[in-house]
Simulated scan of single mutants.
Amino acid sequence: MLAATLLALSLFAVTFAVNLQAPLYSSYVGDSGFGATAVAIAFSAYVVGLMPTLVLLGGLSDRIGRRSPIAVALLLGAFATALLVFDPSWGSLIVARILLGIGTGLATTAGTAYMTEIIGGDQTRRAALAVTSATSLGFGGGALGTGISLSLQGPTFFPYSFAGLFIVAPLLALLMVALPRADDPKPVSLLRLPVFPGGTRSFGAALGLAWSSTGMTIAVVPLELESHGLSEWTGLVIFLAIFVGFLCQPLAKRMSNEIALATGLILIPLGFSTLLLGVWLKSIALVLLGTALSSASSYGFTYLAGLSEFALRAPDNRARATAGLFVYAYVGFSIPVIGSGFLADAIGLFEAMLAFLIVLLTVTAFVAARTSGTWKPQYARSDR
């Protein structure tokens, strides 16, 4: 149990670093001269580091073991954050986001497989819940931690949240290396492509859609809030964009993966529509409600269902299957943000968000229609 706890804490720390700098985006890119485009490029640089890691190194831990990639990911997170302390600029933000992407790719693929091996191969859904809980809290907690730190310290490029990561990450890296081995490394190629198990296309597509709304919430919505004088809510919005999903995971675990997927597909457009209405009416209550609804899908129902289904359908390739799922997720997470950033500078932030909503509604309806006829809902066993 100690090994599972330390692994969960390590996954939390890796993902905590990812959005740690989010409340400072506008400060980092202030002198770049590119507006929303600069934020979109810096935000999506994360995927530039992550996607090659998922595509080429998703099965690396099958060869070298699970512990080392996670330890490296922890150190990369600390180094990327230190770079922003010593050189708080747009260029450094891009480099830091690339390093954070590499770390996330290493940790999530190795960590999912390792957690299943620690808990037991017949407890796939339990292991998936542990991973989704740790990473959801991490992705949301970083932004909230920096937001709270800034409210206590005032404007600074070295908030308390950064200092906390510098202390915890190296310690966890050492503890990860000291954990017992639970896997049996195989003499396979270092470069291993992701696995996309049969019957999982709907789960992957749905997670891509869900994370596209989260990407927009984290990267683009804060810019609109700032334009309305509501920038002090940014940290809470980003935290809710992920934390509410964590709260929904126990409920999602009691459902079959198919029912959780259907629930997520309903919440995706409902959440972003409510959020956009809140932006239009300058109602922070509606913004927070829409963010919470989107989060319930992105890091709750759809996230747990997808991770569990991919692992269940590829028991001999869990690390590579996890990489396959995150390929779907991060394509959705990045492309809309990049497109909306360019569009926002051309026609305006709100108009770009409205265009995204129209595309989101259309594609979600298509995925739901394709999905509805391919499965019959059944209640999941507790050990599934």
Score class of each variant (00 low, 15 high):
residue 110 A to I: 07
residue 265 L to W: 02
residue 347 I to F: 10
residue 227 S to M: 09
residue 327 V to I: 13
residue 71 A to D: 10
residue 12 F to N: 02
residue 197 P to F: 06
residue 378 Q to T: 06
residue 138 G to V: 04
residue 234 T to L: 11
residue 272 F to Q: 04
residue 294 S to C: 15
residue 13 A to N: 03
residue 110 A to R: 06
residue 226 E to C: 00
residue 168 V to W: 02
residue 121 G to P: 06
residue 202 S to E: 08
residue 162 F to Q: 08
residue 25 Y to T: 03
residue 234 T to Y: 02
residue 366 F to K: 03
residue 81 T to I: 04
residue 79 F to K: 00
residue 70 I to A: 09
residue 23 P to Q: 01
residue 128 A to H: 02
residue 17 A to N: 07
residue 150 L to V: 07
residue 344 A to T: 11
residue 265 L to F: 02
residue 68 S to P: 00
residue 18 V to Y: 14
residue 122 D to Y: 06
residue 19 N to G: 00
residue 325 L to H: 14
residue 201 R to G: 13
residue 318 R to L: 08
residue 74 L to C: 00
residue 95 V to E: 01
residue 348 G to F: 08
residue 284 I to N: 10
residue 35 G to Y: 06
residue 74 L to D: 01
residue 87 D to H: 11
residue 315 P to G: 15
residue 246 F to E: 00
residue 244 V to C: 04
residue 83 L to E: 08
residue 164 G to V: 13
residue 33 G to R: 13
residue 110 A to M: 13
residue 348 G to K: 02
residue 19 N to W: 01
residue 369 A to C: 12
residue 15 T to P: 00
residue 180 P to S: 10
residue 384 R to M: 14
residue 135 T to N: 14
residue 241 A to D: 08
residue 76 L to D: 12
residue 293 L to R: 01
residue 322 T to I: 07
residue 192 R to N: 13
residue 146 T to S: 14
residue 328 Y to K: 05
residue 212 S to E: 08
residue 368 A to K: 04
residue 186 K to Q: 08
residue 188 V to H: 02
residue 313 R to L: 10
residue 18 V to F: 11
residue 367 V to C: 06
residue 373 G to F: 08
residue 29 V to K: 13
residue 232 E to R: 14
residue 50 L to Q: 15
residue 228 H to V: 03
residue 74 L to E: 01
residue 361 L to K: 07
residue 45 A to E: 13
residue 249 Q to F: 12
residue 178 A to P: 05
residue 256 S to E: 02
residue 334 S to Q: 01
residue 185 P to M: 09
residue 179 L to V: 10
residue 288 L to C: 07
residue 7 L to I: 11
